[in-house]
Amino acid sequence: MTPETLDDTPVRPETPLRGPDKVFRQLATAAAGVSFVIVGLTIFFLVDGSRAAFRSTGIINFFTRSVWQPSIGKFGAFGLLIGTIIIATIALIVAIPLAVAMALFINEYAPRVIRRPMTSIIDLLAALPSLLFGMWGKFALQDRMVPVAKWLSQHLSFLIFFRLTRPGVSLVESSMIAGFVVGIMIVPIITSVSRDVMAQVPREQCEGALALGGTRWGMIRSVILPFGRSGIVGATLLGFGRALGETIAVTLILASPVVKSNIHVLQAGAGTIAAQIADEFGTASTLERSALVAAGLALFLLTLVVNLAARSIVKRSSRLA
């Protein structure tokens, strides 16, 4: 018997509900129904809105080609999809070590006095608007990242990702800088979710490891990390979902999204679905809007799958405790 199922056991009154109780219950049920309506509307209208684009260019072409030519009605979001995944992956590479270290710091290392302030700082980082991250990334971080990008392109060019397509290409407005900023943005969610799971390790096991003469890191490696592993995986997936949908910070840094897929992460020219929608929507024709809705539908389904997987992993891992 897990706590989750215990909690969900409905309390059915034996006598039928009387007047006000019945009304109250109906009101609450109606409120709960609103969420169903919203999700239903989302799926219906996004599918309906993308029909025109699919008709004009073909569903398979839409997901396998990388073109964006509204004038002749040809669209393909393959490059944007790849760009979205590349930037979200870079974000994870930046965020995972920082977030897990931060979670361990708050749970295990920080003195009691600064534990609460550190939690507040993580919460604050989550509450700051993505606009601020984008503006900071574009005007404060970008110029400082260019020498790093140059160094990487010179010394690690045996990795295809760090290779430049031609010498002297611009190193600003790149996937790496966008991914870096998005990575900082998803640190709070990964930290707080994995922290919650790691805090549920039975304290006796930790103390046992220490009592056997283990160091603190030995205890973390042999008790806390194995226990919290699935929680960290779930938290990472949640962060990945956030990173896939991040719009404004990415749009500001990429300036104008490029629809062709670009795996050279150090150089200018990249695009994501969300950035393409934000950048093009205001000036788009009816058909192009339909194509943007279709791209949005793809993004929606992608984040939906990632998020539901993440939620179920997190739930299972905290139920183990």
Binding site: S35, I38, V39, T42, L46, L238, G241, R242, L244, G245, E246, T247, A274, I277, A278, G296, L299, F300, T303, L304, V306, N307, L308, A310
Partner: peptide, 9 residues
């Protein structure tokens, strides 16, 4: 499912 909805969507 809704809580992961990208804001642009």
């Amino acid at each position: 499912a809704m809580s992961g909805l990208p804001s642009i969507v």
